[in-house]
Amino acid sequence: MTSAPSLPVPHAPARARIAEGLFRFAVRRVPVTVELPGGERIGAGGPRLRINQPRAFFHRLGADAKIGFGESYLACEFTAVDDLADALTPFAARMATLVPPPLQALRRFVDARKPRAERNTITGAQANISRHYDLSNDLFAEFLDETMTYSAAWFHDDNEDLAAAQRRKIDGILDLAGVRDGTRLLEIGTGWGELALRAARRGAQVTTLTISAEQQTLARKRLAEAGVADRVEVVLRDYREARGSYDAIASVEMIEAVGEEYWPAYFATLDRLLVPGGRAALQAITMPHDRMLATRRSYTWIHKYIFPGGHLLSREAIADAVDRHTTLHVGGQRSLGDSYARTLRLWRQRFLDAWPRIAGLGFDETFRRMWEFYLAYSEAGFRSRYLDVLQVGLTKP
């Protein structure tokens, strides 16, 4: 089903020497231990990473650090001796300062740019989404919980299971949007149908939009099995092509796939489709505003391998887009960042435990390392508070 990507080692000797110097300088101040061949150890002490092939590792960092670090993990050029997320979290906590400020000014000359082919036009967005969400419904079923929910859960205590925390998260969004019996609800981003299912059980009439054919198929099946298919329409349609009037709109971790170029269209769509007095509720992954501005043009490992066309917002960017492009008002907000770190750890554990069955679906060892790195890297972002995830309520006068 998927084959290992070709990962030739780039030849960048001058940049590799610079990268090695910067890496050694940065790691001296980071509470990790980096082991190199021959017994050398660098770092301030802590979770251990082992560089197996220093030449390849530093050439990748020199050629493109934002992509090369993750690619080096895929190629087994470095490994985690201890837990991978534990080792990545100290780096995530120092993301803004790992590279000395004078060198950060050179970012525009060395960072790869996002490919124009991955712009989130209507056709481009469908292709981008398909590359991730249409991998295989069976793959996602192996590591998600019974609700098939692929976004941050909301945990109340350490003993709570993942499915209960996911249902709390969904109910939180529905409450922010004021969904009750008789509500006409639009959902932007169906997932595999759990939010639509719970809204229908409240008595809402739901239209839910997706641009993933795989998700549409399974969502319809799950809704029919739950006995609510008569109250939910699952439509294969881009949000920009939506029509109608709705009392409420819900959209959970879909805005990350919109792209900065289309934020005005996304928020204007919410405004256009909501009736006066209507309410919308978003769940959005955020990053610090200064880091968003500094990296807005960068092409990263996550873009290349996991979420093409993706772009995170900041709290400020959400408020600015709402102010500039809508008549809506920002209302209640809650942060679920700590819960997302736990969600990602559970997904990674379940993914690795299920690997023999996932491999049986046709996925190879490089895919396993790719997804292990993606889930650990994301967990590190939330554990370090570099990333957050917000539930945001919006109201239309």
Results as ranks from 00 to 15, higher is better:
12 A>L: 12
14 A>V: 13
19 A>H: 05
33 T>K: 01
34 V>K: 00
42 I>Q: 02
45 G>Q: 05
50 R>D: 02
57 F>R: 05
63 A>T: 01
63 A>M: 03
67 I>D: 10
71 E>P: 00
76 C>L: 12
77 E>G: 06
81 V>C: 08
89 T>L: 05
89 T>Y: 03
98 L>E: 08
101 P>D: 07
103 L>W: 00
108 R>E: 14
108 R>Q: 14
109 F>Q: 15
110 V>R: 03
112 A>R: 15
112 A>W: 10
115 P>M: 12
115 P>F: 04
116 R>A: 15
120 N>M: 00
124 G>H: 07
126 Q>D: 03
126 Q>A: 14
127 A>N: 08
128 N>A: 11
129 I>Y: 08
134 D>H: 06
139 L>Y: 06
150 Y>W: 02
151 S>F: 13
153 A>W: 09
159 N>Q: 13
160 E>K: 09
167 R>S: 11
173 I>Y: 11
174 L>F: 02
176 L>G: 06
177 A>H: 13
192 W>S: 14
195 L>W: 01
204 A>W: 01
204 A>P: 01
209 L>H: 05
213 A>M: 12
226 A>P: 11
226 A>C: 07
228 V>H: 01
234 V>Q: 10
234 V>W: 12
234 V>S: 12
238 D>H: 09
239 Y>K: 07
240 R>I: 02
247 D>E: 13
249 I>V: 15
250 A>S: 08
250 A>R: 14
255 I>G: 11
255 I>T: 15
257 A>I: 09
259 G>K: 10
261 E>S: 08
262 Y>W: 10
267 F>I: 03
272 R>E: 13
275 V>K: 14
285 I>W: 11
290 D>P: 03
293 L>A: 15
294 A>D: 13
295 T>Q: 12
297 R>L: 08
299 Y>P: 00
303 H>C: 05
306 I>P: 06
309 G>F: 02
311 H>F: 09
317 A>C: 08
317 A>Q: 14
317 A>D: 15
327 T>D: 14
327 T>I: 04
331 G>T: 06
341 A>Y: 10
343 T>C: 06
347 W>I: 06
348 R>Y: 06
348 R>C: 05
353 D>Y: 04
361 L>K: 07
364 D>N: 15
366 T>D: 10
366 T>R: 04
370 M>N: 11
370 M>Q: 14
379 E>P: 03
380 A>F: 07
381 G>H: 06
383 R>T: 03
384 S>W: 00
391 Q>N: 15
391 Q>R: 15
393 G>W: 15
